[in-house]
Simulated assay, not measured.
Amino acid sequence: MLKQTTFYLLIFLILFSACNSKDSGSKQSEQLVVDSLADKSTVVKTFPDLIPGETELREDCFGEIIELQGEQKTTDAIFEVRETQMLVKDSLLIMANLNSENMFMAFSLPGFELVKSFGKMGRGPGEFQYPQLVPAKKDDCLCYVYEKANNHIFALQKDFIISALPFKLTDSQTRHQINDKQLVSFSSHEFVYAESVKGGKAVFDFSFQNDSIQDKMIYNLSFSEKHQSWASYIGDFGANAGKQRVVYAYKYFKQLVFIDLKNNTSRSLKFNSGEAKKGNAVSIMSPENTTHYWGMSAGNDFVYVLYSGRSPVDVTKEWRKKMYYIFVEKYDWNGNPVAKYKLDNWGYFCVDEQRNKLYLASVNDANPFFVYELK
């Protein structure tokens, strides 16, 4: 009987010890999780590396096209939409568009009330001829303004004062009358841009530190010796500083390239749409040639690109019949197709990822603003 009691006691001690050991391990694992969550400064969010190479895509790679109907918004501002650019900063929609001799307008969201019209058009000090809005990654200003006429960069402050940065971009490598740089900001002293070069186009990294300027080519966007005219490489440029990605979409080719700056790799997406017409700038930009991409909104999570898919001649014929529409293609920052939308209007756009909305300034309506809920 004593031996039996001793045996059961031994079994109980083993089980008790195992339970304690398991409980102790569970608490340790829990503590590691708590410690990890408590010290958020040590948690580094990583983004998957870009898969390099060339990918052939079909037009149906997005799945079913999602048709969106815009909600028209009235505004107290009267202006004609032309060569327009828009971006969202907090509760403001900032627009570059000539209005009563002012180059910029700021509207409140979601009501589209005009907050301020500012930035005089002209050649004098503090005036603008060919400005480009550049989103600011931090909250120290609303955005930056790049003046193509003289390569100067300005900061648009929250009180709508425009102040010059203490440097300017290097002059263009080509002999264009107006620089064709397309600029994105990585910080207040580092900008990445796409610009025409001899025989094509390239991406550059520009930085200003300790009164020293560094400007270097980081990627050549030219891809064919058969197409060496600068017009062949017209397109739209965007970037994501946090993910260290840039993207370029070509206007006369159904083609995009995503570039991973950290690993110096790229992924090209090519659709089966045939080659663009070869020749000089005049023949390439003929209104009879198909326009593919001609507008981009680069967000934190996705990149959105306006897509026409027909020639300006065909679009004009449709407009005569009151047929207004354009497409928006949505990609993730690894170059994967996500969705394709069909908008019931035509114009310039930007995407507000925070509110999951798309804003469009129509070229066909006296009340130009339309809002689309993204699905």
Rank of each mutant, 00 (worst) to 15 (best):
F12G: 12
N20E: 05
K22E: 12
L37P: 05
T46R: 08
D49N: 13
L50A: 09
E54H: 10
T55N: 08
R58I: 07
D60Q: 04
A77P: 00
T84E: 02
Q85F: 00
V88Y: 03
K89A: 09
S100G: 08
E101M: 12
M105Y: 02
S108H: 08
P110L: 02
G111A: 13
V115M: 07
K120D: 09
Y130F: 15
Q132R: 12
P135E: 07
D139H: 06
E147I: 00
A149Q: 10
N150A: 01
I153C: 08
A155Y: 01
L156M: 14
Q157K: 13
D159V: 06
K168E: 13
K168R: 14
D171I: 00
S185E: 10
S187Q: 04
H189E: 15
F204N: 05
N220P: 05
L221T: 10
K243Q: 15
Y248K: 02
Y248M: 03
Y252F: 15
K262F: 09
T265I: 04
S266N: 11
L269C: 02
P287R: 08
P287N: 14
E288I: 10
M296T: 08
S297V: 10
G299R: 04
F302E: 12
Y304T: 00
K317A: 14
V328N: 03
V351Y: 01
N356R: 13
L358D: 08
F370K: 14
V371Q: 08
